[in-house]
Design a protein around this nucleic acid. Structure first.
Lengths: 241, 241
DNA sequence: CGAATGGTTGATGAAAGTCAATACGGGTGG
DNA sequence: CCACCCGTATTGACTTTCATCAACCATTCG
């Protein structure tokens, strides 16, 4: 770990809260990356969010998944292809502020600047891992690596393993992992048959033995290193801007 | 284009030159991303460079391609998997300086800070395009999109088209495009047969009609938008640090 | 000129995509 | 609380694409 985990200190958050508006989100809600007042920045507080683009031939690709603590800046999202920020989980919360305000804060508030840099570097690393996932792994390996990521980031201990919610439906998983919905379904079924996962309802996954799942993909140790330190969501202390 | 093209102004470069060491590189030369003095930063002056990682199962993946004007910071390269920076073209030149020095410069020199930010955002956009390339395009589309990128970035006008050098051999192309060397070879052959490309020697490509090549891939307009503005290599004016 | 490296190409197989029929889950209204 | 309905998920049959292996060819460099 090059840097301490990106735990926003409560102080920094309190200062940030002075400039931000809290937004409660529902599943599928889209958030404009910019308005007439210029580009926006978002801090994820609760839930999972994704950015996606739609290609000329109507294919959709999910570019990134964001977790609590992540900072999303309109200028950092692919500026060419039309990108959309969208709430993935049933309920979520983000803080929004103008990108210019965020830049200003970064210039004047050392604590915030450090937080921002650490988070952006963390995101770049995740992006790199994801590029590897898509470019170098088989379907099963891709699914396994993402499930491990979700388990470590968002999971809660249960019965000697981890339980977590899928922030994406089959089609969303497929769009993120560069696979087909049918293929994702087959792969998940196979993992369940082999006893590596169990599912209750459509979105609840329980993985009894994360190490066994880790054996399914060559990137598991890198993913563990990245996400273990970052597990804690935003610290409490500045709950309402 | 959100920002002016990242032409380093000669002034900024002159200031940067005071802190940097020039390194002439040959094909395949590896550059350490950090030393005992801490992480390094590089500014590409001439030639093409790549970063790659080697997966546990010995597969190699090229993560990024860098062109003149790009700034490479050790902390920004995937910090988990062991990454290597490597000169791709026969001869190249980079300036190296300690990452801490670069940070310091960015904090005190507004012109340089702007240059750095613009370049990092440009790189992020290219990274996003590349993720799309690998995740959403077929083999032929991937190859076409990369050739268009190279033509626009590094090509010189020739006979109503563009001529350029491949910075990577077949295996390198394959590692970057998430394909097999054999498959890349087949695809390039097919493009040549169809008259979209012609090749002289092993690494010289001539594309008579870039629009025709553009029709082979859905991302061509995004790529054109990104790379057209950035064609000019580093301006002259501070040639030796 | 000849060895070595890298490129091409054909035959084959495995993995994932596509299409279509069917099953399930979760919400709604009776 | 149950029955129904819609959207989503699963699964099978088939096709396409790409990877693999192996043999052969072309460049380049000593």
């Amino acid at each position: 770990m090059p840097d301490p985990p990106p735990h926003a200190s409560a102080d920094v958050l309190r200062r940030l809260a002075l400039h931000a508006t809290s937004i409660a989100t529902r599943q599928g809600q889209k958030l404009a990356l910019g308005s007439s007042h210029g580009p926006s920045a978002f801090l994820v507080r609760k839930g999972t969010f994704v950015t996606y683009v739609t290609l000329p031939d109507a294919r959709r690709r999910i570019m990134s998944v964001f977790y609590p603590g992540d900072i999303i800046g309109a200028p950092l999202v692919p500026p060419l292809v039309r990108a959309v920020l969208c709430a993935a989980t049933a309920s979520g919360e983000v803080w929004r502020l103008p990108w210019s305000r965020l830049e200003q804060l970064a210039a004047t508030d050392t604590g915030f600047a450090r937080l921002l840099t650490a988070n952006l570097i963390d995101q770049a690393a995740r992006q790199a891992i994801h590029a590897l996932r898509i470019g170098a792994l088989s379907g099963t390996e891709r699914v396994a690596s993402f499930l491990i990521e979700l388990a470590l980031r968002t999971g809660t201990p249960l019965d000697r393993g981890l339980a977590f919610e899928l922030p994406l439906a089959r089609a969303g998983l497929a769009d993120y992992l560069a696979l087909n919905p049918d293929t994702v379904s087959r792969i998940v079924s196979r993992l369940k048959t082999r006893g590596l996962l169990s599912q209750s309802g459509r979105r609840h996954i329980h993985c009894r033995d994360l190490d066994a799942l880790g054996k399914e993909c060559p990137l598991s140790s890198a993913i563990a290193e990245l996400h273990l330190g970052a597990r804690a969501p935003c610290p409490k202390g500045a709950d309402q801007p």
